[in-house]
């Protein structure tokens, strides 16, 4: 008896972890960007395995569709498609310290997760109830547009602010072309 969800989980998580390692160890920023695309696709698979279908679809649409295109576009715009040696340039001591600090932080997360078990009361949104309510998307839409409508509206302000800020930061000032530092 083969447990296919488990096999899919092993495959997707392997792709995600190897891809994320490639993101930080590849010298070429374009290679990092494409490894990140693989990570995002693997994450979409993991979401689908947890029957979070809306999140899986949005992961592909927003992350691989919008954010990564933005990254690749900026890499092209800045001509950053040649290898950079910035990983080797940081000192070995700093790498060791960073590794130890990150491991300690991860250990703290595990500790907190074990200590906090059972604090949050279990809800009643099982997969079966979601199916009853008309599926994952409908349940989330109902919650989003009733209980969380204020946060939803606030994100529109956030996006508007981000658009204005990006244009203000990235546009060339003056007509002569070069800006003074």
């Amino acid at each position: 008896m083969i447990d296919y969800p488990f096999l899919a989980f092993v495959a997707f998580s392997t792709i995600a972890i190897l891809g994320s390692l490639m993101v930080i160890f590849k010298k070429n920023p374009v290679a990092s960007a494409f490894a990140l695309v693989a990570v995002f696709f693997a994450f979409a698979g993991l979401y689908a395995l947890m029957s979070a279908h809306l999140v899986a679809a949005l992961q592909i649409l927003v992350y691989t569709g919008a954010i990564m295109v933005l990254f690749v576009f900026v890499i092209m715009l800045l001509n950053q498609d040649r290898p950079v040696e910035d990983f080797k340039s940081s000192s070995g001591t700093f790498k060791v310290i960073s590794g130890v600090a990150v491991s300690f932080l991860v250990f703290l997360f595990v500790k907190v997760a074990f200590l906090a078990r059972g604090i949050v009361p279990a809800g009643d949104w099982t997969v079966e109830k979601m199916e009853e309510q008309g599926g994952n998307v409908k349940s989330i839409a109902n919650a989003l547009f009733s209980d969380h409508i204020l946060q939803f509206e606030l994100t529109s302000f956030l996006l508007l602010g981000a658009i204005v800020a990006t244009i203000a930061i990235a546009k060339r000032k003056g007509s002569s072309g070069r800006t003074a530092p």
């Binding site: 390692l21 993101v23 930080i24 800045l78 950079v84 940081s90 600090a101 991860v106």
Partner: peptide, 20 residues
């Protein structure tokens, strides 16, 4: 994944890779 991302943010110097 979070740990790998944090480690990369600390050790890489390229701003594009740091954002990734």
């Amino acid at each position: 994944i979070f740990g790998v991302g944090l480690f990369g943010l600390l050790v890489r110097k390229n701003l594009l890779v740091m954002l990734m």
